[in-house]
Design a protein around this nucleic acid. Structure first.
Lengths: 240, 240
DNA sequence: CGGGACATTGATACGCCTCAACACTCGTGG
DNA sequence: CCACGAGTGTTGAGGCGTATCAATGTCCCG
């Protein structure tokens, strides 16, 4: 981890689907007004993490809220029985660092090189009290996170794995970077273990299911990480 | 549905695990200051729903946010393939009515007789802009919902159904009314279909799994809706 | 050329979904 | 008082999908 000097980059928060939409840009991001940005700059700092680097660990004291400027973060939860469940993959515009009773609920790791803005929790609280518009930004962010979490729930409760995988690929092609819409080629940032732990299955089944989808000509594996998708075909899988 | 005249009852919002805790009572509820309560009373109204009555339907225009004073609400989502997934069971102190792009994401139904406070969304937005402390209440509420949603995710991703059921029973005994701690008897408010749709399984499997737990002396079925629990024993199931 | 990390493929066992039949409780009405 | 039906919960038999263990394949880097 490395702390960057200098001013914060322009910040935006994912707010897809929020309404009424004040200051939401066409892509569903809420932009921070200059004034808020300045005040945040007084307490926040920009940090960089390398791929595979741990950002924070579940059950340790929660000091910061993070906001992603660039990169992808995996947030996961270790259960008592040893299983690891990926709670979410976060991208630019997503806030993360959910805490309960002063400790982090999950662990966070950088999947790619990540540029983050790190805001000390205590100071954020007092700043939000002084600057209600900033609080609104975080409220909108929290509700966006709640929608994402519920979508994830609907995804993992599909009994058939083929639906989970199809839904996952569609989700990636919508809300992630690394999807070339013209070629319809998705470049995955995560490995098979991450996908399996996100969908609640095993790496072998992920691999086999991609095989099934390839048989049905809905997916073509250019290599392990690059998939050519038949988007309408995958959507049809979810409807059966 | 029936609209009640007269003043609003005292309102509180579930905020378990929030920190730093300003004005959070021992049970984890955030109490609304009198002033906010008064302002809310100007735009909100108290409504009553009978058991099994529909409160709102997925994909219809979202006009209100609801806050539960008393009773239990089932929020569920219908998927394209016909499956119904219960997103959450909500109790006193929980806000619900999540919307995306102006329409409800899920459907809500009363499980018991429900006393709710219904707040028009548009007026709530402008009131929140004038009264930041109210906005903070909703922010805290949204984060509590996010924690609940993530717990639910961890529950339904247990591969073994016996863990899902054990976890579900423990969850009910913690955060729901209808658990007599002295006798360790849990009275379920929902039927087998609701449980199955909450855990992503079938009613038959719910029934059989309760049978398994009964063989292991971790549960005793007094009748279909009343279960005597061995709490430590159920916790042990989750650890294996 | 080796080693390690990651992905795929194969064989097997078993847990759960499905369909089906049956038990139970409750209200209604004969 | 009993008969009937609907709604709900339980139990049984069978087939299928997926987890698991194991082996093999592939890529990258030293």
């Amino acid at each position: 981890m490395q702390i960057l000097a200098g001013p914060l980059p322009p910040l935006h928060i994912r707010a897809v689907g929020d309404w009424p939409a004040d200051r939401i840009d066409p892509d569903g991001y809420l932009l921070l007004a200059d004034e808020m940005q300045k005040q945040l700059a007084l307490i926040a700092s920009q940090v960089v993490y390398l791929p595979k680097e741990n950002i924070f660990t579940q059950a340790t004291v929660a000091k910061y809220i993070y906001l992603i400027c660039k990169g992808t973060v995996r947030v996961s939860h270790q259960l008592e029985d040893g299983r690891s469940q990926v709670v979410a993959f976060y991208n630019a515009g997503d806030p993360f660092g959910l805490q309960e009773s002063g400790v982090y609920l999950n662990s966070a790791d950088a999947l790619t090189e990540c540029y983050l803005v790190r805001v000390p929790l205590e100071q954020l609280h007092s700043l939000c009290d002084r600057e209600p518009r900033l609080q609104k930004v975080f409220l909108v962010g929290a509700m966006a996170q709640l929608r994402m979490s519920q979508r994830h729930l609907l995804l993992v409760t599909h009994q058939r794995i083929i639906k989970r995988i199809a839904g996952f690929l569609l989700e990636c092609s919508c809300q992630m970077e690394g999807f070339d819409a013209r070629q319809s080629v998705l470049t995955l940032i995560m490995d098979r273990t991450d996908i399996a732990d996100y969908l609640g299955t095993s790496i072998e089944t992920v691999s086999r299911t991609l095989g099934k989808l390839e048989e049905q000509k809905l997916v073509r594996r250019l290599d392990a990480r690059r998939l050519q998708l038949d988007i309408p075909g995958l959507q049809r899988v979810l409807q059966q």
